[in-house]
């Protein structure tokens, strides 16, 4: 088990919070809460050791230069593949978006 932290520049705080997924085999739980304006902070607790690079690449692809909302993101991962992680993150972001 490993705990990892990431931070990205962001826009204004999201207006609500969201929880999606479950700490089940091949899945993960994502909790989004409004953060401080300008910053997206992500904390990952994962059952898979040595996966920091994989998480960093995934988040960079999603958030770098994308001006995401300011959020505190908690991820509890139980061996989800990058595809599942992205799906869950997009699902959670959709729930906090104002559209």
């Amino acid at each position: 088990m490993e705990t990892l932290s990431f931070a990205f520049p962001a826009g204004l705080p999201a207006s609500r919070r969201a929880q999606v997924g479950c700490v089940g085999s091949g899945d993960l739980e994502v909790l989004l809460e409004p953060g401080q304006a300008g910053s997206l902070n992500i904390q990952v607790v994962t059952s898979v050791n040595g996966s920091a690079e994989r998480w960093r690449h995934l988040f960079e692809r999603m958030f770098a230069g994308a001006n995401p909302p300011a959020l505190n993101v908690d991820i509890h991962d139980f061996g989800a593949t990058p595809g599942v992680v992205r799906l869950r993150l997009e699902q959670a972001l959709e729930e906090v978006s104002d559209v």
């Binding site: 479950c22 700490v23 809460e33």
Partner: peptide, 20 residues
Amino acid sequence: DPFARVKSPWLEAQGIVAQA
């Protein structure tokens, strides 16, 4: 609710990811 984060205090010490 999950945001209260009342989760198991025992699992992480045993190397198991806890749910919120």
